[in-house]
Simulated assay, not measured.
Amino acid sequence: MTVLLVALGAALGAPARYLADRAMRARHGPAFPWGTFTVNVAGSALLGFLAALPAGGGAMAFAGTGFCGALTTYSTFGYETVRLIEGGARSRAAVYAAGSIVTGLGAAFCGMAVAEAVTA
């Protein structure tokens, strides 16, 4: 049953990532990977929120592992960082890498804080 919940969550998370990336590219262009940045930060906030809730294993399997796991993408983050470097945009690559890590960690912390506030 847990595997099915993970698969169902992933079936929603992957298309959400794809659509978010397409929307960000259409709005901001391809110079900076805003789509991946946005879904990684949003996924970090959601996962932080979920991790701080007293929810059962099924909810975390569906939303945490499945949805957030498919929504966020470390491999694309790495690929896009390398592509920026190869394209001569070293400063942009550094901002992207550092900004993704710092903002993702901050978003996870904020998500946990919100969950703790609403369950207190």
Score class of each variant (00 low, 15 high):
G64H: 03
P54M: 10
L71A: 03
A55W: 14
T38E: 00
A59T: 15
N40R: 01
P54A: 12
L47W: 06
A42K: 04
H28G: 04
A55L: 14
V41H: 05
F67T: 12
G57R: 07
G78E: 11
A63E: 14
F62E: 13
G57V: 13
P33A: 11
W34G: 09
A51K: 09
V39R: 08
A26F: 04
G56N: 09
F32M: 10
N40W: 02
G29F: 05
G78S: 15
A45G: 06
C68K: 02
L47N: 01
C68D: 04
A70G: 03
G35A: 05
G35S: 03
L46H: 03
A51G: 14
T73C: 03
G66E: 07
G56E: 04
G56Q: 08
L47Q: 02
T76V: 04
G78C: 15
R27N: 05
T76C: 06
L71E: 05
G43S: 02
S75I: 06
A42F: 04
T65R: 12
F67P: 13
M60L: 11
P54W: 10
G64D: 00
V39I: 11
S44L: 03
A61S: 11
L71Y: 02
F49G: 09
A52K: 00
A51W: 14
A59Q: 12
T72D: 04
A52C: 05
L46W: 04
F77C: 03
G35R: 05
F32L: 08
Y79P: 00
Y74A: 10
P54T: 13
G35W: 00
S75T: 04
A63M: 14
P30D: 15
L53W: 14
E80T: 01
T72Q: 09
A31E: 03
L53Y: 15
A52V: 08
T81Y: 01
F77W: 05
T65G: 07
A55T: 15
A31L: 01
A70P: 01
G69N: 09
A70K: 06
L71D: 03
E80Q: 00
E80S: 00
T38L: 06
F49E: 10
T72W: 09
A59F: 12
G35K: 03
C68S: 06
W34M: 10
A42I: 02
G66H: 08
L71S: 01
P30L: 14
A52E: 08
L71F: 07
F37E: 08
W34S: 09
T65V: 13
A55Q: 13
G48A: 05
F49L: 11
F32T: 10
